[in-house]
Amino acid sequence: MSRQDVSSRTQTFSLWQQTSLITSTLIGVGILTLPRSTSAILYEAGWMSPVFGSVVAFVSVWMIAKLSQRFPGMTFIEYSAIVWGAKPHSRMGRWLSLPWIMAYLGFMYVSTAVVSRIFGEVVVTSVLLDTPLEVIIITMFLLAFILSLHELEVVARINELLLPMVLLPVLFIALASFQKADWNNLLPFFRASGSSLFRGAYEAIYSFSGYEIMLIFFAYARENKGKVKAGFYGIAITMVIYTLIVVAGIVVFGYEELQRVAWPTLELVKTTQVPGLILERLESAFLAVWVTAVFTTVANAYYAVIYGLRQLFNRGMAFQRILSAILFIPLYFVALWPQNTVEMFRISSYLGMYSLILNLGVPFLYLTILFLRGLGRTQKERNADG
């Protein structure tokens, strides 16, 4: 079935579903390492890192939303040819847009592999000590593969359902950890220099990476004007969660001790006690929630890649299912490419730089071209089934 032969369903993404897609994708593996990486640069002021990082993320998602508003009902894959071509569907436009499309899809693909590898490292070093890393990674990929067998509306509904199951426990853990807080660990407030603030914001960039999936999913928004609002809500919710986690880590351990811990948030959970000892091993419950958070990050990104390729080749659902099974195999080897944890974090740092360039540079370039050419105000909205 071709993409033009879609059914007549009219279900489109609500504001909450768009917000859920953004938030669920952003909250992932970064929540375990952010207290250590930010306090290594900003010391007591490490909590400022997600705040400043969220500003950069919102500027980017604002540009992505504005792009989508100019082409309602069209994804980045589709309107790229119009932006770069002399006329819609021109051959020149398709060829000129191809490098940008492949750069976007390639980044999402590699990020999916790296996030899965970090997830696997945490599980095999903290919980399932005798389980091979490969088994953990394959299990996560299988879940992402199963989701990619369905249409977009299923993705939106799953994110809508799982987001409260992630947010509420994480908020509870962050607030409960303040029982052992030493608030003097946040002093002095203004020790960090301007350059340190900039580097700290950059450190948080990769943790905020993932909202670029909306280059695909914004095409199915129910209200064209609500896209900026959804981006703001998604970034704001993530910023609050990340800031609370970093503050909790600093006030409980201090920034010096955080540098000696591989997964500081997990250690924070282990030191937290629920009143009445309702849960004696709180880290087990936290890891269950964290697995859900990582699943939405991996599955959403992988789906965006598969769906983007489906549109690039102008195919239907059968092609998407076959492609998702084929790309599953190289994704596994990409995830195992880093030889150790140090190399894995170094690759994550490179991806953070690439993410900053891609997510700020490409939307800005596209908006500039649209401004110069006066394009992108007459397209129609589309349904969420392809």
Rank of each mutant, 00 (worst) to 15 (best):
R260Y: 08
L327A: 11
E257I: 07
V240E: 00
L287E: 10
A325P: 11
M239Y: 04
I216E: 07
E283F: 03
G226K: 14
N300R: 05
Y255N: 14
I213L: 13
R315S: 00
R222C: 02
A230R: 05
A288L: 15
W263K: 07
L282I: 10
Q259F: 01
G249S: 01
I322E: 07
T292C: 12
M214Y: 09
G231C: 06
A236T: 15
Q259E: 11
K227C: 05
V251G: 08
V291Y: 07
E212M: 02
R222K: 14
L277C: 08
F295H: 03
L323E: 13
I250K: 11
G316C: 01
A262P: 05
A288D: 00
G234P: 13
W290L: 09
E212K: 00
P264K: 06
L312Y: 00
T272A: 00
L327C: 14
G308W: 02
W263Q: 06
G276Q: 03
M239T: 08
L268K: 03
L215W: 09
L258E: 11
Y303D: 01
Y307K: 15
E283H: 02
L323P: 12
N314Y: 11
I322L: 12
G226D: 10
G234H: 08
E283S: 00
S284Q: 04
Y233A: 15
Y220R: 11
K229R: 15
A221K: 03
V240I: 07
L277Q: 12
L323H: 08
A304K: 13
G249E: 00
W263V: 03
V261L: 02
P275N: 02
T292I: 15
I235E: 10
L258K: 10
T297K: 04
F319R: 05
A318W: 00
T243M: 05
M239W: 05
E212L: 06
Q320E: 12
R281N: 15
L266G: 09
Y307C: 07
A299Q: 12
E267S: 14
A230T: 07
A248S: 15
R315H: 03
L215Y: 10
W290T: 13
R321M: 09
E256F: 06
E212R: 01
Q259D: 09
A285S: 12
F217D: 06
A236N: 00
V252N: 14
L277D: 11
Y302K: 07
V246T: 13
A288W: 08
G316H: 01
E283L: 02
V274M: 13
Q311P: 15
L327M: 15
G231N: 12
N314A: 13
L282E: 09
E223R: 13
L266F: 08
V247C: 14
A325R: 12
